[in-house]
Design a binder for these strands. Structure first.
Lengths: 111, 111
DNA sequence: TTGATATAAAACCATTTGGTTGTATATAAT
DNA sequence: ATTATATACAACCAAATGGTTTTATATCAA
């Protein structure tokens, strides 16, 4: 077993920023270098790089050096922590069927 | 139609803080005044009050004056925005069945 | 009425956050 | 070899965050 992996930034804090949420959705389209990502945001490449660092520390993106590029790709796995926390409040929905209904509807809305 | 309701704090930012996440779980047990809530946290009552203000602005808690007390209760509804955002990444799980499996497991874990 | 209780509100503070610009370095293209 | 590209890194900055203490106000209890 490795180190306990103390994350400086957790997933909740990582997705608190709207720019970072947009970056994750953008990266859902596939791996891309910082310059490409940067083209989608009204801020400096350095600022984008800092956001990606935070996402990386939360385990939500992985990086890979290719030539002079640094390519990023999404790793959605840590988002399951979100799902798990959220599920604590499931009992506040009418019943299981309503919860599933809700899930399906939101899945549709996200298409 | 009323005002567009510009929220100063959104649900993502509200749950970014671990103390606020604990407060929401605590309030899942039912309505309670600030003093009671405050008893569960190693910080001043004023600090707790500020956190509750942020949760209130995000629509996650409702307050009600009863005598000299100010009682807070959970309103989980805005959490559905979380669920909706999360669902965008559903396609990264193997398939729908795996997603449901995952949902059920996390629901179990939260019991 | 005199305290005690529950809370709000204001002022203050250190640290973090989200951004900038400027400089340096490695790689690729001509 | 020279130039252009992709990025990292450091220094800086204003505003937001998460906390404190102090002061004030309303309500309940004796």
């Amino acid at each position: 077993m490795g180190e306990p992996q103390v994350k400086k930034h957790d997933v909740f804090q990582a997705i608190a920023d709207p720019s970072r949420r947009r970056m994750l959705k953008l990266l859902a389209d596939g791996e891309m270098p910082i310059t490409t990502i940067s083209g989608h945001f009204p801020m400096s490449r350095t600022a984008v790089s800092k956001h990606l660092r935070i996402l990386s520390e939360a385990g939500l993106v992985k990086e890979r050096k290719v030539g002079r590029e640094n390519r990023f790709r999404l790793d959605p796995e840590p988002l399951s922590e979100l799902q798990q926390w959220y599920s604590y409040f499931d009992r506040f929905w009418e019943n299981k069927m309503a919860a599933l209904q809700h899930l399906v509807e939101s899945a549709e809305a996200a298409k």
